[in-house]
């Protein structure tokens, strides 16, 4: 008898655990907060400002999702993760999504069991060196000491690059960007390698950015994007289409300035109407209300506005749109249609 009760309790517990793993949306709503995994601090992408508020390009994605789901762009609990801890944090359910300049690869998709919902920044791995070293190409780095964030794709690209060019190097593994910065500035490593955007962001925080150069070689493709766990496709859809809403908004000219006017009543562009919920029931299909995308866009503006505000050419980081321009402008940023 006792054993039956025991096993019965176990079954209930097991079912409860299974059910809670499936519906991330309900969990987030019940909690009233979105747990979003970000970096431990990379200016422009995700870093706390002077008042302790997180801001940046990746943070904007978290805020947009929180706005779409919970109606409040500030209802986000930011969980700083290192290159090493990020996947365990996501797989264990400690965070609901990861927006942490993470490269989309096959093995992370199929083997680590994560779903990348899209790409919010097309990047590539570069090298930064002190200008007075007189190095003009990454191929001249034979024998150099290289600071490298451990647990990243850049670690593997680095090994491949040096092997392919038949030159040697000495890796200095580091945990966080701040640690890499310290070692690089003290000259404990000759070069610091990570995604080119990360290098630009790091260099912008230096006392004298002009004393450092990013070498021209980009040795890998690093499509960075937000990701969620396998197994909850509804939640994956919400994050995917929130990102797409920001991208489409830029394409269609919806900005934080004119969104109030455009969403007041249905206009003559049916796709704008569908995104903003004045026509059709796209929000309902996602399990949200009609104004989800409107709130997401209002959280920080459309993709272009987010880019310009955090990492664009007018910021200290000064990244050009390049590959990250809209497809009509010759870039790769492209959203499937809202239909």
């Amino acid at each position: 008898m006792k054993k039956t009760v025991f096993l019965g309790a176990l079954t209930v517990a097991g079912l409860a655990a299974g059910a809670s793993a499936a519906a991330t949306l309900d969990d987030v709503k019940a909690r009233g907060k979105l747990n979003c995994g970000v970096t431990t601090g990379l200016v422009g992408f995700a870093a706390p400002d002077a008042n302790g508020n997180w801001e940046g390009f990746d943070v904007a994605v978290c805020r947009a999702v929180a706005a779409a789901v919970l109606g409040d762009a500030n209802a986000v609990e930011f969980v700083p993760t290192t290159g090493k801890t990020r996947f365990t944090a996501l797989a264990s359910g400690e965070v609901d999504m990861l927006a942490r300049n993470t490269t989309w690869t096959l093995s992370r998709d199929a083997d680590l069991k994560f779903t990348f919902v899209g790409v919010n920044y097309y990047d590539g791995q570069g090298f930064m060196v002190h200008k007075d070293m007189g190095v003009s190409s990454a191929k001249e780095l034979d024998g150099a000491t290289v600071c490298i964030q451990t647990g990243t794709t850049t670690e593997l690209n680095l090994a491949d690059f040096f092997r392919a060019n038949n030159i040697s190097y000495e890796p200095v593994p580091i945990e966080t960007n701040a640690e890499g910065q310290q070692q690089y500035l003290a000259g404990a490593c000759d070069t610091y390698t990570t995604d080119a955007s990360g290098l630009a962001a790091t260099r912008a925080t230096f006392e004298d950015p002009s004393a450092h150069v990013v070498l021209p070689e980009i040795i890998s493709k690093e499509p960075l994007g937000p990701l969620v766990r396998h197994g909850d496709n509804e939640w994956g859809d919400i994050v995917r289409w929130t990102l797409n809403a920001l991208i489409s908004a830029e394409e269609l000219g919806i900005t934080s300035a004119n969104i109030g006017e455009l969403s007041a009543a249905a206009g003559d562009n049916p796709e704008i109407n569908r995104i903003l919920g004045t026509e059709g029931n796209l929000g309902e299909m996602l399990g949200l209300d009609a104004e989800w995308a409107k709130r997401a866009i209002m959280a920080g503006g459309n993709y272009g506005e987010v880019f310009a505000k955090n990492i664009g050419e007018d910021t200290p980081i000064a990244l050009a749109r390049g590959l990250n321009a809209q497809w009509q402008d010759g870039g790769l940023i492209y959203s499937p249609p809202f239909r």
Partner: peptide, 8 residues
């Protein structure tokens, strides 16, 4: 560290 991270 690295093995765990790269293989999951």
């Amino acid at each position: 560290g690295i093995t765990m991270n790269q293989t999951g």
